[in-house]
């Protein structure tokens, strides 16, 4: 009987462990932040919603290999790219600035390093990186831009080389991206 009780305990533990593992591994990555809650700040859906991870990220990496091997290598080392863009109304500006600053403080308390915090011409820019032992595991960029009536949140998860991102990203255009609802 005792052996059966031990067996049952193992069974429960194993099932719990399995259930925990069922959660997506990217979401447990130290460089990942959950952007889902941000939507409640604005009371409306994101106008730009980018979620590239898992199989899609691998396919994107392979798709770019022929044309841009450097980009393909960079994407191979990433685990996820998340972007949320929201329309910012003047009445929301103060509240969003406060909430963004609070999110930044929360990140700092969670071990994220503040790379830059710049306020220029009313635009508020926050940049944070999550450093692990010998690499950067995540990057967060938050831009509150009342001049352009938008707020942007970017989270890049994976083995990140900021210099590489800066150099490779410079090759691409940040023109208008196809927005949500325009599919």
């Amino acid at each position: 009987m005792k052996q059966f009780r031990i067996c049952l305990a193992f069974l429960v533990v194993a099932l719990l462990a399995g259930t925990a593992k069922a959660q997506n591994t990217v979401e447990r990555d130290p460089g990942y932040i959950d952007l889902a809650d941000i939507e409640s700040w604005f009371g409306s859906e994101a106008t730009l919603d980018v979620n590239i991870k898992g199989a899609l990220l691998k396919l994107v990496s392979e798709a770019s290999r022929h044309e841009d091997p450097e980009l393909a290598d960079l994407l191979t080392n990433l685990k996820a790219i998340q972007v949320r863009g929201y329309t910012l109304t003047p009445s929301q500006l103060q509240g969003i600035n406060q909430r963004t600053a609070e999110l930044g403080r929360r990140l700092a308390r969670s071990g994220w390093d503040t790379v830059a915090r710049v306020r220029e011409d009313g635009e508020d820019i926050h940049m944070y990186v999550k450093a692990t032992d010998d690499a950067i595991a995540g990057l967060v960029v938050m831009v509150v831009s009342p001049g352009e009536n938008e707020t942007m949140f970017v989270n890049i998860v994976g083995d990140i080389n900021p210099e590489e991102i800066g150099r490779i990203g410079r090759k691409f255009d940040i023109g208008p991206l196809e927005r949500r609802g325009n599919n």
């Binding site: 790219i81 900021p162 990203g169 255009d173 940040i174």
Partner: peptide, 24 residues
């Protein structure tokens, strides 16, 4: 089409981060 769209979004995200870094 999903892959092409995602590739465009990835390029845009990298370009945006690069732009903000330069601006900063």
């Amino acid at each position: 089409a999903d892959v092409e769209r995602a590739l465009a979004e990835a390029r845009w995200a990298l370009a945006y981060v690069s732009h903000v870094s330069r601006e900063t």
